[in-house]
C-alpha cells in the first residue's frame, strides 16, 4: 500500500482521473466527495490546520503516476469543504484555507471536556497554555491552531462559559472559566 509519510493512501490515489477535475456532474460530485474525505482524514492524522493553495501540499500530487491537481481543482475541493462548514477561507483571495476536521462547536466541546478533566472549572489559563501546556499534552488540543482555538473560545464566551481578558503581559490573553 502506498503511503505518504505514515499516512496510508487509498487505492484510487493511483487512478489518474482522480487528479483531473471531472466535467460530468455525477462523476464530479463523487470525485469531490472522495477528495473531501481524503483531505479531512489526512489533515486529522497529520495535524494540519491550514492548507496554502500556492504552496506544495503532499496530498495534491502523486509522483508515482505523475499527476497533480490544478489550482482550479484544489480550490474546487476546498470550497466544497468550506460550504459544508469543514473549512474556512482565511483571506478573500482564497490563498489559505483553514481545515476543520472538527467543527468549531466540536472543538468547543473538547475544550470543555479538557477543562473538566483537569478541574479548571473556575480556573484561569492562558490561551497558549491550552494549546501547548503540560495538561494538554496527549490531547487533541495540543498543537491546535491558534485561530481555531480562539474561535472555539469565543463561541464558549458567547455562551457565558468563560471570559477572555487581556493579560498583563501583552503577548498573551487569559481565559477565566466558569463552567
Amino acid at each position: 500500500m502506498q503511503k505518504l509519510g505514515d499516512f496510508k493512501l487509498p487505492p484510487f490515489f493511483n487512478y489518474p482521473p482522480y487528479f483531473t477535475l471531472q466535467p460530468v456532474r455525477d462523476t464530479r460530485e463523487k470525485q469531490i466527495q472522495l477528495w473531501k474525505e481524503l483531505i479531512l482524514d489526512y489533515c486529522k492524522t497529520q495535524k494540519i490546520f491550514i492548507i496554502g493553495l500556492e504552496e506544495e501540499f503532499p496530498l495534491f500530487a502523486n509522483p508515482v503516476i505523475e499527476r497533480s491537481l490544478t489550482h482550479e481543482a484544489r480550490e474546487t475541493f476546498l470550497s466544497a469543504l468550506v460550504s459544508e462548514g469543514r473549512a474556512e477561507w482565511l483571506d478573500k483571495g482564497r490563498r489559505k484555507c483553514l481545515i476543520l476536521w472538527h467543527r468549531i462547536q466540536d472543538w468547543a466541546d473538547i475544550i470543555v471536556n479538557f477543562v473538566k478533566d483537569n478541574a479548571f472549572e473556575d480556573g484561569v489559563l492562558t490561551v497558549e497554555e491550552i494549546r501547548s501546556g503540560i495538561e494538554s499534552r496527549g490531547t487533541e488540543l495540543y498543537g491546535l491552531d491558534r485561530i481555531i482555538l480562539m474561535r472555539a473560545l469565543k463561541l464558549l464566551e458567547h455562551k457565558g462559559k468563560l471570559a477572555i481578558f487581556k493579560g498583563t503581559s501583552t503577548d498573551d490573553e487569559g481565559v477565566k472559566f466558569s463552567i
Binding site: P17, K30, Q31, L34, E37, L38
Partner: peptide
C-alpha cells in the same frame, strides 16, 4: 479516457 471507477468507490471507507 479511463473507465469510470468513481461510482464503485465507497466514500464512507476510502480503503
Amino acid at each position: 479516457f479511463y473507465v469510470n471507477l468513481f461510482p464503485e468507490i465507497i466514500s464512507d471507507d476510502l480503503y
